[in-house]
Nucleic acid binder design. Structure first.
Length: 436
DNA sequence: TACATACAC
DNA sequence: TATGGTGTATGTA
């Protein structure tokens, strides 16, 4: 039923706006909006329109809208008989307690390679210098050169969409082994400054340089400059670093004052989307409850709402974000802490059960190989599959013995209840390493 | 334990 | 023509 009341038009246009933003991909908001992001988003949306992917994104966007409606209804109900001043006072008390936990004694550094895959390709192929290019794997971009980013090209974007934004974009195939090689080299350098450093993916990590600075009578700034120079000398690649929570890219470093006031001033204007753990969905939910400018300063003004919906939003996490206090211990993950291993394949839609089972066999074989290499066994096998509509199903089964063989992984075939599959993922959760 | 969702890289 | 792969955390039932 068509309706043209101003309110309906407004609701529809808001929905479209959130969908268009969603289609722009998870990394578009993180990196900061380009000047003509609206035009970029329109091109992306037009290129997607009509596809099954688009329809699925529309469905998920609608689900978030419904979630927001429920949240607002709940909020309205809860506020009816709420002594807001009292709740706010108790939040202020909690904030005081959290503030007492602030520890400014540790020098924590976040190091992050600039456009890592793209710059490795540039290193091995200097003719790419100054060109708009992107590294692509399985039709999806993993990195874009800085020149390409100016066109709105982002990691995670489908290659054919990127081509619409930037028709002369050069696509370079992923070379994983090469990135691993250089990653090992970089991590080796970071280790010299903090043996307990915690890698985050293959191109970034967290370091506690307190001890190093003490032993070498250096300031954090001097130390980080040295780290960055060493990485450049040994790899010819640039790295950026934030001492405290900020990052300054490319080839930069930034140190935030070690002072509660300066840190709070920093978070006050920090878009909440930049906080790790706040993605596209959380951003929308938080916006709906009044984090209007989408900055962390609004966490304080909305502390009453957040507190009555602690489960939804994670009250303490958000308050700590507002205060700019997070864990300041850095510890490498140990082998024993790993919780799962999996293998996943995406393919063009298969309809026949025989073809699907052949694919499943392939995935099971790969998982068995990876498990043997790293020496792991597990007890809960999860099958995840995706239909051509992009709808995802997961089916899990725990068993009373240690699984290590392909044949047992392959047994998940019993749990497939559909055809038109386009993706299969077998995952194994484990409790212990394989016996020697 | 089973399943779905959200998120990071 | 066409939208990845690996792993973690968490809420709910």
């Amino acid at each position: 039923m068509e309706s043209n009341s101003p309110k309906d038009t407004l609701v529809r246009s808001q929905e479209t706006e959130s969908l268009v933003k969603r289609l722009a991909g998870p990394s578009s908001g993180k990196a900061g909006l380009a000047k003509d992001q609206t035009e970029i988003n329109r091109i992306i949306s037009d290129a997607s329109k009509g596809s099954k992917f688009y329809e699925n994104e529309k469905k998920k966007d609608k689900e978030v809208t419904v979630r927001i409606e429920k949240i607002l209804k709940y909020k309205e109900e809860a506020f009816k008989n709420l002594d807001v001043a009292k709740v706010e006072a108790s939040m202020d008390h909690l904030i005081e307690q959290l503030e007492e936990q602030r520890d400014l004694t540790q020098l924590i550094v976040h190091v992050d390679m600039d456009a890592f895959f793209a710059n490795v390709e540039l290193l091995d192929n200097p003719s790419l210098a100054g060109k708009t290019f992107a590294v692509v794997g399985k039709g999806v971009l993993t990195t874009a050169s800085y020149e390409a980013r100016k066109f709105g090209v982002r990691s995670g974007m489908a290659a054919f969409i990127a081509k619409k934004l930037c028709p002369h974009l050069i696509l370079v195939e992923n070379r994983h082994w090469r990135y691993s090689e250089i990653s090992d080299q970089i991590m080796g350098i970071f280790h010299r400054y903090d043996p307990d450093m915690c890698p985050a993916g293959c191109d970034e990590g967290y370091l506690n340089i307190t001890a190093y600075c003490e032993e070498h009578a250096m300031t954090a700034e001097e130390c980080v400059r040295e780290i960055r120079e060493t990485v450049f000398r040994e790899t010819k690649l640039t790295v950026s670093a934030g001492i405290a929570p900020n990052k300054n890219k490319p080839n930069g470093q930034y140190q935030l004052d070690f002072d509660a006031k300066a840190i709070k001033a920093f978070t006050h204007d920090l878009p909440i989307r930049k906080v790790p753990g706040i993605g596209r969905v959380s951003e929308r939910l938080l916006e709906a409850i009044g984090i209007k400018a989408s900055t962390c300063g609004d966490i304080y003004t909305q502390r009453a709402v957040i507190s009555i919906m602690d489960k939804q939003f994670g009250l303490v996490y958000l308050l700590r974000t507002y205060l700019g206090i997070s864990s300041n211990t850095v510890q490498a993950h140990t082998r024993e802490e790993r919780k799962s291993i999996g293998a996943e394949r995406t393919f063009s839609t298969l309809h026949k059960l025989d073809d699907i089972l052949a694919k499943l066999d392939e995935v099971a074989a790969e998982l068995e190989k990876d498990m043997q290499e790293d020496g792991w066994v597990g007890r809960t096998i999860t099958l995840k599959y995706k239909l051509d509509t992009y709808r995802v199903f997961t089916r899990a089964k725990s068993v009373d013995h240690w699984v290590s063989k392909k044949e047992e992984l392959y047994a998940v075939r019993q749990m497939i209840h559909s055809s038109h599959l386009t993706n299969i993922n077998i995952l194994l959760d484990w409790q212990r390493p394989a016996p020697p």
